[in-house]
Design a protein around this nucleic acid. Structure first.
Length: 229
DNA sequence: GAATAGATTGTCT
DNA sequence: GACAATCTATTCT
C-alpha cells in the first residue's frame, strides 16, 4: 500500500442512511465489511476500509455491555437510535468504537476491530506513534485492533453518541466483500461470557493484514446461518 | 509461534 | 475493590 494522497471525492459512495443501520445486528456486522469509515477532524481527514467487526446482541448476549438488560450512563447510547457511535474506554488506556444497530430500546451494536487505511496515513501514523513507541509502523498496523483503530482515526469519548449520518464521523457505501472472502470466528476477549463466548459473531476479510487476533480459527461464512442464535 | 505480564483508569458491585 | 469488547514487549518453546 502506498502513501500517495487520495482525493476526498474518491473515498467511497454516499453516506449510509439510518435505515441501513436499523437492521438485524449480524447483518449489519457482515455488511459493514468493505465499507469506508471517515473522520473529518480538525487535524485532518482520515479514512479506511473496515475489515474486521464483532456483533454484540443486547440483553441475551452475556458478552455485551447491555447483557441482562443493563442500562447505565456508559452504555446509554446503545439503547438509542441506530446509526450512532458508541465509544467506550477500557483497560485504562484504550477506546473502542461501535456502530449502534436496530431501534430504540434494542441495545445492540457492532464493534469495529480492523481498518485498512485509505486516506490520511501520515496523520494516522502520527496519532499512533505518539503513544506506541515503535519507530516504524506498517500501514496494516495502523488500524489493526479496536484500540489502535480508534487511536489512528482520532476517535475518543468526545465522539460518543455522534450521529454517523450527519456528523464528522461517517460511513460511506462501498462494494460488498464477496462471501468467499468473509470468515467468521468467536469474538475476542470475552471469555467471561460463558457459552456466549463461543458464538461466531466476529466477521473479517480473509488474507487481510489489518485483521487482529487469530486469523486461523476460522470457518467460511454460512450466509443461511447469519441470523442463527 | 505461544504464553505471559505489565501498563493504567473508568465503571460497576 | 475487582475487573475490563486491549496492546506491547518479553520470555519462553
Amino acid at each position: 500500500m502506498t502513501r500517495h494522497a487520495v482525493p476526498l471525492h474518491a473515498l467511497g459512495g454516499p453516506i449510509l442512511p439510518r435505515a441501513w443501520f436499523a437492521r438485524p445486528t449480524l447483518r449489519v456486522a457482515r455488511t459493514l465489511l468493505g465499507k469506508i469509515l471517515v473522520h473529518r477532524s480538525s487535524e485532518g481527514v482520515t479514512a479506511g476500509r473496515i475489515v474486521e467487526v464483532e456483533a454484540y446482541r443486547g440483553p441475551d448476549d452475556r458478552a455485551a455491555h447491555t447483557a441482562g438488560g443493563r442500562r447505565t450512563a456508559r452504555n446509554e447510547v446503545m439503547w438509542g437510535q441506530a446509526g450512532h457511535l458508541y465509544v467506550y474506554f477500557t483497560y485504562g488506556m484504550h477506546h473502542c468504537c461501535n456502530v449502534v444497530t436496530l431501534g430504540e430500546d434494542y441495545p445492540e451494536a457492532v464493534l469495529l476491530r480492523g481498518l485498512e487505511p485509505i486516506a490520511g496515513l501520515p496523520l494516522m501514523t502520527r496519532r499512533r506513534t505518539h503513544r506506541s513507541r515503535r519507530s516504524t509502523l506498517t500501514d496494516a498496523q495502523l488500524g489493526r485492533g479496536p484500540g489502535n483503530l480508534c487511536r489512528a482515526m482520532g476517535i475518543d469519548r468526545a465522539l460518543n453518541g455522534a450521529d454517523l449520518t450527519t456528523g464528522r464521523v461517517q460511513l460511506l457505501d462501498a462494494p460488498p466483500v464477496p462471501t468467499r472472502d468473509v470468515r467468521r470466528s468467536a469474538r475476542i476477549g470475552v471469555a467471561y461470557a460463558g457459552a456466549d463466548a463461543a458464538l461466531p459473531w466476529r466477521f473479517f476479510v480473509r488474507d487481510t493484514p489489518a485483521v487482529s487476533g487469530p486469523r486461523r480459527i476460522t470457518r467460511p461464512e454460512q450466509t443461511t446461518r447469519t441470523h442463527a442464535r
